[in-house]
Amino acid sequence: MMLRILSSEFLKIRKKLIWLLVAAGPIGVVALQAVNYGVRYDYLVAGKETAKLWSGLIGNVSMLALPALMVGLALVASMTAGIEHQMNAWKLTLALPVRKRQVFAGKFLLTALLLLISCTLLVPLTVALGLALGFDGPIPYGDLLTNAYYPYLAAMPFIALQAWLSVTMANQTLPLTIGIVGMIVSMFAGGRFPDWVPYKWPQLVNASHEPLYSVTAGVALGLVVFVAGMAEFVRKDVK
């Protein structure tokens, strides 16, 4: 049943701007770094060893990708839920023989999958930029994948939260404002907040220097928020 719901969800976003956003996010991030490297080539590239070049590039891409992910998840969640809000289509879907739980899970999964696509695109795009800049030597695929997926997993509480808020509120002003505030808070959370603050997790910074702690915490809390959102959605009357 979940597969059927997802296939229906993907059909509904056909020809929608969401796809443009999903692609524009990673492309924009890498393109900006391309300009950055182009303008400051001498400072960033000249005379450095290959490994440093790659790790520098990955770090620079992550620096922009994190806020893009944090605000992008709010936008994508709002757009996927907006399809139903705009045309008052919740009553259509929920009067069909599907569980409300599954409808909620469908919206969450759609949002999460679209963001996963965005994060995945970062990898080939970063590699392409590195090669275009003339970096040679072994491409550090491990680091590339880690930097694409760990922050994504650690941001899971926010994906679940935004999916919940966007689905539950017809007016998207509040969910999107919360998303924007979240992005800005997370950007400045790194050095200032204690480790337990979720806004810090996507940066994978913690006292034990173990990124997997942030990832685990993110996935766990993400699950909790998801279940809470689902419980609320199931109980609510449909407008």
Binding site: S8, K12, A89, A95
Partner: peptide, 30 residues
């Protein structure tokens, strides 16, 4: 609900999709 069809108040539809695609979105669920 498996044996009920409904139209509540005004019709709900996805404006950017064609009639066939609208029906297909529901068909996949049914």
């Amino acid at each position: 609900l498996r044996k009920v069809g409904s139209l509540v108040e005004y019709p709900s539809y996805y404006g950017h999709l064609t009639a066939t695609e609208n029906l297909e979105a529901v068909r996949r669920l049914l």
